[in-house]
Structure formats: structure tokens, C-alpha cells
Design a protein around this nucleic acid. Structure first.
Lengths: 245, 245
DNA sequence: CGATCCCTTGAACGTAGTCAACGCGAGTGG
DNA sequence: CCACTCGCGTTGACTACGTTCAAGGGATCG
């Protein structure tokens, strides 16, 4: 029996065997894009499929960073805490996003599922070895990190300089655009996270988030629908409101 | 704002030969660390040394991103603007930091000098080719981007969840630690940027920055010295104040 | 059916923003 | 050489946006 078959038997989930990377429907979105079949096979050999229910912690800030993850379905939030419990969510990750970058071999943030999610888990040492071997993948990861960095700067602008209304509108537009890029319907927008999560992402309180939704609803810019969906009724107004026009 | 071509003197390979990367005193801090002599020579071949007076724009948000830069001396600020002029400074870069990562071949932010500065300029196409060739350098760049990303998340926590006093203390401590890591004296801290710049970095107004400095001064935690220096009189208090203890 | 969680709404409060004035030092020109 | 301007920092008075504290509704679940 070839060694790679041995490796595959170690995978946690049977679904990984039935759905190898070559057939992965979200590959084009992520770090695995543009790898050739042989490289994909090598990648499949080291990954574990992980399924996590909503509200569970993948890893906590300060944990030793022994794996990189790739979201294949669901939504994951990353956050940091202050000693007194104040929380800042630094990102909501969805299909195709990766997480687990480390500083000093420790995670810099806590990762927790918002909805039940599936992830590919790459043990650090193995993925590092593979990155050495496949510069193509290294470049891809770098380019994704660059995009993350640009998004982080947008978020700083939002946190430091936007009003509550502008923050909420920017947030909804971001979710909408992100859904569109993944081939989901961009309107109404699916908003799976709680008011508390939105507040901690935008630097607000739940009360302010709730009040601002009500304002926008009253102004006829959005309307709330069943199943945590938000219909953007006036897209132009949203764009204007998102930047203070 | 003066036109930057006037202030900027671009020295071609001639000066690069006189001061080759091999003798560069800040190499260990930056992307050029751990390259061998041959690789350094190749790097020196493509770089331009750039000297820029204070208050000049290196490039603006949206410009086509045709170069990567590396700060060798001085301080550079990066910022983004809202249509009505509100500004968020996303970082102050010093010796060893790089800038110029692009999204869609455009810069995502404006880069402007705070003090007169020197930079190494790497034309995009040439540096990309070199990165292909030297995976070592690619990895180094990636690891620096990872650190940037972690710093960005810290900044989001600051912007979203810290009070004015906590922001100012965190800021001064960051400057102090950064100076220490570069072998400069960490106390008193050199603070070359204006109140307006500090405000736009911390999501405050100049008045609040000024008032908070006065408060900290009155409380005996810091004292202001000649030449834009801040003496941290009570380091423990600063650490506590920075996280709301 | 009670307990819990999440969301919403109301009222009062407080932190930081806004508007305004002034001091100070550097640079400029009469 | 002095008067003037200009940019920057500081301080004061007032305001406002978002927070805090509190209450209640609605959905879910044991």
C-alpha cells in the first residue's frame, strides 16, 4: 500500500476521502487555487476535515499555533479581549478565508464559530514543509494576506472615523459584496451573527446596533426579513450613508 | 502640500554601489535579512535610494502600485480618507518597515513622510521577478506581512474598544517598545508626529489628544521634554492605563 | 410553564467632539 | 529690527453621539 494511502486513513472525516481537494467546490476561492492535481493530492494528504457546531472555540488567543485553517462552509469570528472583558471582533470569516497566522508561534486571537462550520485543518509543520516545496502556494497565501491587510485598514478607517450609521451601512454592504463574490445572492443579505457580535465588530454596543437598524428600517433603506436576512431596499442610499455623503 | 518630485532625489544604481546592501546597517530588521551576498548584490542592482523631506507624499491611495518601499530612516505615515476629509492613519512606519502592498495593482492608502526619510525603492516588476527567484525573501516578506496583520488587529482593538486615555498610553508604549527593538533609547520616547497625526491614528481629535497628555502629565505618569520627547515617569502605571486596569 | 437568551425601546448620563479663543515659536517681509 | 502671519498646541465652554442602566417582549427549550 502506497504511503499516501496510509496518510489518508489518518484523516478525521470520511468525507475527505469521498471529496478530495480535486473536487473541492470552493477551491478557486482559497489558498488551494491554481495548484496542479499532483500538488492537490499532496495537500489532501496532510489535511484534516473539521466540522464544528456554532458557538464553539477553535483556538484561543495565546494558544500554541499548531495549525492553519481554511473555512469551507459557515462563518467564523476572530476576536481579541481586554482584561476587563471588552471584546473586539477583528473579522468574520467565510468560505475560502484562512485563519491561523501566528506571531511567535502563538495565535494572536481567538477563533469561534458563528454558525456551524466546516474547515480544512493543516498541521503547521506539514503545511510549512509543503509551502517550501510549492512556492505557488506560498505566493497565493501571501496575496491573500495582502488582501487581509487592506481589509484591516478599511476596518481601521471604519472604527476610527465612521459614525454608527456609517458603520452599519458599511457592514451590510461588505456582507453583500462578499456574498456576491462567492456566488450567493447579494440581496437580501444573510446576517448570521448576533447584535452583540455586530456591535463588537463595529466598536458599538448592542443597543446602538439595534437602534440604528430601526432607524434605517424607518427611513426605508432596509427591511428585516425572516431568517436573519436584511433586504437592502435602497442600495444607492446605502452607499451614500456608508461614507457619510 | 509641495509637489513630491521637487523634494525627492532619486539616486540610481551609482549610489547603490557605493552603499551596497551588504553594508546596510538596517538589513537585519527588514526584508533583506538572511539573504546571501550574491542575492544582496542582485537586490542592490534593482533598488533605488530615495530621500524625501518631511511632509511629502510618496504615493496616493489609488495610484498604480509600481513599487515596493523599505524605510531605512525617518518616519512615514499611511492613511486613508473619507470623501468629506475625515482621515484615518493606519500606521507609522519606521526603519525596517516596508510599504507598497497593492490590491488590484493600486495602492490602498496614501503614504506621506512625517520626518525627512530615506527609503529603498524596488520597482514592482523587478522585485516580483526577484521574489520568484528567492523564495527565502518571499517567506520573509510573508512573515513581515503576518506581523503587520497582527499589529492591525491590535489597532482594531484599540480603535474599537479603548478609551482616550488607554489609546494614548498604548500609543506611547508602542513607540517605546518599537524604539527599543531598534536599539534606540526607549525612554524618553521620541514622538515626531503632530497632535493631529496622533489624533487621526487613534481615532480622536487633536483637542482630546492634547487634553489627555495634560491629564497624564498632571497625574505624574509622563512629562513632556524638549524636542518632541515624552518621558514615561511611571511605566507600571502606563501599562495599567493602557489596558484599563 | 418557567428560565434563558436575544432583541428592542426608553430615559439619563458621560465621554469625546465641536466651536472658539489664545499663547507661542518660526518664518517672512516691510 | 519689529510687526505680522501662520501653524501648532493648549484650554475653556458647550454639545451631541453613543453608552449605560433599566424594562419588557418574543422565541426557544427543558
Amino acid at each position: 500500500m502506497p504511503p499516501f494511502d496510509m496518510a489518508r486513513t489518518r484523516e478525521k472525516s470520511a468525507s475527505a476521502e469521498m471529496n478530495p481537494c480535486g473536487a473541492c467546490p470552493v477551491r478557486s476561492l482559497t489558498v488551494c487555487a491554481a495548484l496542479d492535481p499532483e500538488e492537490l493530492r499532496r495537500l489532501a494528504d496532510i489535511l484534516q476535515n473539521v466540522r464544528v457546531d456554532s458557538g464553539h472555540t477553535l483556538f484561543a488567543e495565546g494558544d500554541s499555533a499548531d495549525a492553519l485553517y481554511n473555512v469551507t462552509s459557515g462563518t467564523v469570528k476572530l476576536y481579541k479581549l481586554l482584561p476587563d472583558g471588552r471584546r473586539q471582533i477583528t473579522g468574520f470569516l467565510v468560505t475560502g478565508d484562512f485563519l491561523g497566522l501566528a506571531v511567535n508561534d502563538s495565535y494572536a486571537y481567538t477563533a469561534e464559530t458563528v454558525t456551524s462550520s466546516s474547515l480544512c485543518r493543516f498541521p503547521r509543520k506539514k503545511i510549512d514543509a509543503l509551502l517550501e516545496e510549492f512556492p505557488k502556494m506560498q505566493r497565493r497565501l501571501f496575496s491573500m494576506a495582502s488582501n487581509e491587510l487592506a481589509a484591516a485598514q478599511d476596518q481601521m478607517l471604519l472604527l476610527g472615523r465612521k459614525t454608527a450609521k456609517e458603520k452599519i451601512c458599511s457592514f451590510l454592504l461588505m456582507l453583500s459584496q462578499r456574498a456576491a463574490r462567492r456566488g450567493h445572492k447579494e440581496n437580501p443579505v444573510f446576517v448570521p451573527m448576533s447584535r452583540a457580535d455586530i456591535a463588537d465588530y463595529l466598536g458599538l454596543t448592542t443597543e446602538t446596533v439595534s437602534r440604528t437598524f430601526t432607524q434605517l428600517k424607518t427611513a426605508g433603506v432596509i427591511s428585516l426579513q425572516e431568517g436573519n436576512k436584511v433586504l437592502i431596499a435602497d442600495l444607492d442610499a446605502m452607499y451614500d450613508l456608508a461614507e457619510g455623503a
